[in-house]
Design a protein around this nucleic acid. Sequence first.
RNA 1: GCCCCUGUAGCUCAGCGGAUAGAGCGUCGCCCUCCGGAGGCGAAAGCGCAGGUUCGAUUCCUGCCAGGGGCACCA
Length: 562
Amino acid sequence: MSAPLPPAESHTLTTYRPIRDRLADAVAGAVGTVAAEQGLDLAVDPDTVHLERPARREHGDWSTNIAMVTAKRAGTNPRAFATAVVEVLERAMPDHVVGIELAGPGFINFRLDDGWLHEALAAVLAEGEDGYARPDIGHGEKVQVEFISANPTGPIHVGNGWWGSYGDALARVLARSGHQVSREYYVNDTGGQIRTLGMSLLARTRGDEVPEGGYQGQYVVDLAAEYDGPDDVTAAGRWASDRILARIRATLESIGIVFDEWYSQASIEESGAVDETIALLESQGLVYERDGAMWFRSEQLGDVRDRVLRKANGDATYLAGDLAYHRDKFLVRGFDRVIDVFGADHHGQVASLMAGVEALGIDPSRLEVKLGQMVSLVDGDEAVKMGKRAGNAIDLDTVISDIGPDATRILSLMSTLDQAATFDLASVREQSAENPVFYVQMASARIGGVGRKAVERDVTRAPLDEVDLSLLTHPRELEVLRCLEELPEVVADAAVDRSPSKVTTWVRRLASTFHGFYHDCPILADDVDPPVAQARLWLVEASRIGLAIGLGLLGVSAPEVM
RNA sequence: GCCCCUGUAGCUCAGCGGAUAGAGCGUCGCCCUCCGGAGGCGAAAGCGCAGGUUCGAUUCCUGCCAGGGGCACCA
């Protein structure tokens, strides 16, 4: 089973085109022919032909709504137009098409032989884990995904983990779809909160209670026990935030999140970039003074009101730093696109950020802000408390050690970012079968099990070009192939929609089809024809590839043994 | 009051403008001399309300109702 793949045959790679593209060409061509025959002014680009896999199999393998979409332009009724298109298509049937039917209000339904699925399987095997499902929709676009960026004043909370899983998976999806991706964490290592942290720490070193508004957590007590630095608020705060950041980093690495860049807010202030940015806005007449502070006329640019850039005490605000930071992203580091992932509790800063970016001469459409809605946890019937300043709140570390890294990742990626989700820790803890990660990883383990059993029974997988994949005709086998065939589109959709949870949905579906296949289609039993067994072994390998790609995008492991 | 997000099955969530809306858990039934039953098969059960756009709306738009989050010279 672990035998290396036979070398891909070049003709396989160069001649394979997804059936969808071939059908789109045929449909566009037929529409053109009909238009010419009827003297209509109708040109259809194959890229715009909508082809879908009907939910119900009796509606065929593929379907297009082209007649309904173009009927109005053509000035005819959809059924009549569809009839003409079908007639043209039937003169030269597209690849694998064995029947074309008109249905409903004007759908053109294609019935295909199973060959298109066998071709798709061959493509999966030829391209492999590394090459399959790499739709190039980014064309090398340089995109930065900034996410988490939690203040280093305490352990990060569960929401950070959820949104962080999103940011990381999105980065993976973008990288796989032809984007040049960089992951970044913006470290808010300056300002009042660091002083507050320092005050809290110093209070604890003296054995005092933390002052009003300070950080109450046990971690401050623990850090205080180690602190032997100067009795200076800023120095103490810096020291503590460094320690906390190291812990955050370790926590994130434990769920597979690794950043390319940890960008210091203090460094950008010290570089003078903040002053430059304010001066730049000032030179455009967008800054004025009031009550001793410098204000940015952001209301002119779509914000609900103006914002302070420099406080009366001379300190730059967070916004001023953030604008300098974004100027650096676009104009200094040259990202084509920046995606910021924030928690919904930072919603209030979006409008001013957008206004500032625009004022700095950057096309605001190059900046996307994704807001993750709040996450809440329950443990059975009990609500779980979260929150940094509270005492005994549950943090991300605790959850990870409770349910494990894989469950943490897949659960965060089950629902969309826009959904304020509630998760029940009790239902996914350890041996519980309610955890979807088990269902998916079980498929992975079964794939591994087939390999182990094959070795045990001395069965070896023959080279692909000696195996007849067309022997795969069982409905369960074809379901697996249909699912695998969709993966490139799933990756593309996930990238375009910035929605890695689409990959989660797909992975669960692949696991489901695989379990069905595994249940009904014996591979290594004595009464299976050897040629069929060979074809099934390759189907198993393709499933392994698909699962590895999907789980890889989610940052979830694909264990061979459970 | 203003801004953002959400209302889909008893619960937690999917759902690309299409033809009879899916999954897991829960409930009620089946299937283990078999490559991992942490599995498979089946049943009951649902798009907050009202308009609009469209050949077609759970999906897009508006209003209402309900829930969550935000409206600092904090970050």
